[in-house]
Design a protein around this nucleic acid. Structure first.
Lengths: 139, 139
DNA sequence: CTTGACATTGGACCATGGTCAAATGTTTAT
DNA sequence: ATAAACATTTGACCATGGTCCAATGTCAAG
């Protein structure tokens, strides 16, 4: 038999068979060919595409962003600028997210420093601060 | 009438009425008292609790973490160390998340620098890199 | 030939944090 | 008195990214 079963490409790409079927359902990958016994059958190129998805996901792209990336990568009219825009926007999103988290972290650390960690919590400055609106405004 | 309707405390705390009812369903806030006409009725202290939830959420706590925080804050046996442990763990989680995102961001920026952004994408280094396993391993 | 490991399908379900709709009742303002 | 603006309930639904299940079929090894 030439061609891979779903379990094989799944393993190659580092995802589960369920996930491969899920991606097919979502239209992220083409419906696979079938054997006589109705098993999905894949070619080497399918590993490439699936791995593309996996790597992009590891880079923080959502499935819908990956869909765009994939369609760009298969459209001969796509320019480098198109691709760069997508990755640049994603980078910007991640930068914003990091900024948000950093702000939150700082607030949390400040809160943590207020409290010496000894004794009963009835006068815990952390709880007090959550109960009063005194603390730094978020948003 | 003394007491606030759901719309009023919702506004005071900066959430929607739906959200207040949702919090009640989840057990995050006690079932409110009722008027004769079955309207929920709240006291000033309820604004405090609801605002506590809102502020904690803005600090990145999940509802289940907030549940813990709230029960700690109402248990007289709670020590400052208990509270500090929760906020410290949360801070640590956020630090990890920031680290992850930073790693991803760096990979994305590297990818972005590979590409000059001019011309057709058929030889776009970003797409090429997503298609080959050469790029930096994630995880 | 049997057993185990794989495949198929449809559909339910997980967590998260709500949001929205419909049908109905109440309060308030004019 | 009537309309607008609020409230109630039940229950469905949103996105995200799958995971798990049962019932059934197929394939390969011994």
């Amino acid at each position: 038999m030439n061609g891979l079963t779903i379990g094989k490409i799944a393993k190659q790409a580092g995802v589960s068979s369920d996930t491969v079927r899920f991606y097919e359902r979502c239209g992220l990958i083409e419906p696979a060919g079938r054997t006589d016994s109705n098993y999905r059958i894949y070619r080497e190129e399918d590993i490439v595409r699936l791995s593309f998805i996996k790597r992009a996901k590891d880079l923080g792209f959502s499935l819908s962003e990956i869909r765009v990336l994939l369609s760009l990568s298969h459209d001969p009219g796509t320019t480098k600028a198109d691709v760069k825009r997508i990755t640049g926007e994603k980078a910007e999103k991640i930068r914003r997210k990091i900024k948000d988290l950093t702000r939150i972290l700082e607030a949390l650390e400040q809160l943590n420093e207020l409290c010496d960690g000894h004794g009963p919590a009835d006068d815990c400055p952390i709880l007090q601060s959550l109960n009063r609106e005194s603390g730094g405004q978020c948003h």
